[in-house]
Nucleic acid binder design. Structure first.
Lengths: 196, 196
DNA sequence: AGTTTTTATTTACGTTACGTATCGTAATTA
DNA sequence: TAATTACGATACGTAACGTAAATAAAAACT
């Protein structure tokens, strides 16, 4: 590594401006929705100049993802209990989170995003895949505890449990509700060798 | 019902203009990609006027979906064989189809589309859900033939098999390839009570 | 044949958002 | 105090949207 900060010369970037812009973006997202979240709107509402916004985020899509990440609820503390209980608790929480309008916004943001940007990767990991990772933890713990055998093809199993949530959210062919969450868990457990 | 076509008075809508516009849209989609498919571009390339285009499709997003449907490969004829063979054949075909760039375009179109328009519904059924419906057919046939028991929660099972394809396509966290297709079928069969 | 109706094409327009450039000012270091 | 860098304001050029107005063409009615 180099010596980090040799000497920052001129006026430092304003943390305040950055956070005012981000806060305005989150507000717009909540109050007016995805379609209204434009750089101009954020500039006007926050009082931060457009060039400053562009100095902080590469484009509108990245600002949107930043705002979405900002507006996420804190991750649910992991419940303790049987594999079935824990899993159902988590899936149910995801269904609840997706039930809001934010669900569609997330899908839209992901689809629109520039595939291989740093921001997109972060968004994907923290928003889309975080639930799936929690699920991985729950399952591997259950395996360690001897509740189930060590699953093979864990990635495929995880996809089969978590993808349908995203699928129903985006495609909307069938409801994304509690009964669905329960059925998903039941079937998922069967994949893990546990019949309930 | 009324008497259908009493007498269409003035100049009839030009089928030619419509299909020229659609063809141009498909071309642009193939050659330049989703982002370049704009009404202006289609008008210029096809020689069809913008108002005429708007008379045929409500907006740019609908034209895009129409073009995507137009450019779809003919549906694979259903192979005959065991449940496992038939299912694997079909899933593999979907993976192949999704592997092209068109895969991403489909996801983008769906995410961007106006949720409850006629066109969106058609697009969803013919592009996103058609594979899933073929799967339903394969499974119910196998059940009728006594190869498996009649599955309960068929909708959930279908989602668990078909959603992961879409998920990997859009999220891109893991490859959408043949090994994945095979693993998916194996796990799917287990859900259907068949172990191989 | 002439009138009416409807569409096609052309052209222009107003709107919105993007992303950038310019400018004078403010904040910080040397 | 000078140099440097970011700030806010403003204006700009570009692109695409979707609509309007005007003229020409194609068909049905009389």
């Amino acid at each position: 590594m180099s010596q980090g900060k040799p000497n920052p010369r001129g006026r430092p970037p304003s943390k305040a401006a950055r956070s005012r812009a981000l806060a305005a973006a989150v507000q717009i997202l909540m109050e007016e929705g995805f379609g209204r979240l434009t750089i101009d709107a954020v500039a006007i509402r926050s009082g931060v100049g457009k060039p400053t916004i562009y100095r902080n985020w590469a484009n509108a899509s990245e600002l949107t993802m930043a705002a979405l990440m900002e507006s996420l609820p804190a991750t649910t503390p992991q419940a303790t209990g049987s594999l079935a209980e824990t899993l159902e608790h988590q899936i149910t929480a995801i269904v609840t989170a997706f039930a809001t309008t934010r669900g569609r916004q997330i899908g839209l943001a992901l689809a629109t995003a520039d595939r291989d940007s740093e921001m997109t990767r972060a968004f994907r990991n923290r928003v889309i895949l975080s639930g799936r990772e929690v699920g991985r933890g729950i399952i591997t713990e259950a395996a360690k505890a001897g509740e189930i055998a060590a699953p093979e093809d864990i990635e495929v199993v995880l996809d089969m449990i978590y993808a349908p949530l995203f699928y129903r959210l985006l495609v909307g062919h069938l409801p994304l509700d509690q009964p669905f969450a329960r059925a998903l868990v039941t079937k998922g457990l069967r994949l893990l060798g546990q019949v309930r």
